[in-house]
Amino acid sequence: MATITYREALNQALAEEMERDDSVFLMGEEVAEYDGAYKVSKGLLDQFGDRRVVDSPISELGFAGLGVGAAMVGLRPVIEFMTFNFSFLALDQVINSAAKMYYMSDGQVHLPMVFRGPTGAALQLSAQHSQACQTWYLHAPGVKLVTPATPADAKGLLKAAIRDEDPVAVMEGELLYNLKGEVPDPEDGDFVIPLGLAEVKREGGDVSIITSGAMVHMALMAAGNLEKDGIDAEVLDLRSLRPLDVDAILATVQKTNRVVVLEEGWPYAGVGAQIAATIQEEAFDDLDAPVLRVTQADVPMPYAKNLEQMAKPSADRVVQACKKVLYTD
């Protein structure tokens, strides 16, 4: 095991998969000569050349669609969005082409491709650069979505996404790129984490915090604070939002009977809404309290530091929500 950053873990995943399979190429804004806006692709141009590591023009709709077209005839494109905020310009190609092509061609065309980049808020980037984009990609059947929280998950899930036969969005945490963690060494074998497997990041028996992506760290912080009050919280990291590990969700509900869903995005039609619906449909009798959600405030992200703090979910809000479902507040 080596301790590396989330950024290096993603870089390793790209390099290993490009090494393994010549049909994999990386395209996006600034990915080649600039080494990537977040330096995820550092060194890949030197290693693989400009045939396979390609700077695109600022044309999200165009290069996302180009990726779909290349995948239609068997290449395995990795399309990087500098951030998923910019991918809204490409949503026609994501939703109308990528998600639906396999179905509407009745299986004649499948799309082994990845859309990746950071999602969620960083610091004081305000409304158009601070949003969790998961819901847009989850709503339409046909696209899979993973949200790695740790360097190991980043590497293992990106490799799985590149090998998957369907379009997979890999949404990275904008504030996680410098996060360090242990990742199995390449010499110890191929490290791939299958899509659809959640992971309990902290065991606990009193209340379940179900979350994913960057919010996993907030949930762990909240769990640490709850411990001081004698409350033992379990943190379930979904890791993959489609396929969704419903078995793991039901297992933690059955264990603690109390659930808080923590998500970075807005509440309306969000990930938490889906999870709460699934829990009440399939584990209603296991619940001792209503499922609560901690989300971003239902407003665009403001710039001012104090307002931004108020808008974002926080460990304190998670603690409060947990106490509420435990009826101890």
Binding site: G65, G69, Q93, N96
Partner: peptide, 27 residues
Amino acid sequence: FGVDVGFMGGHGIVGGQIPLATGIGWA
């Protein structure tokens, strides 16, 4: 669609097929 004869589809959004063709050209 008729992929076996190189017919890569009719696409329903005006202009949506243009990036796809460009990507096939890329491949």
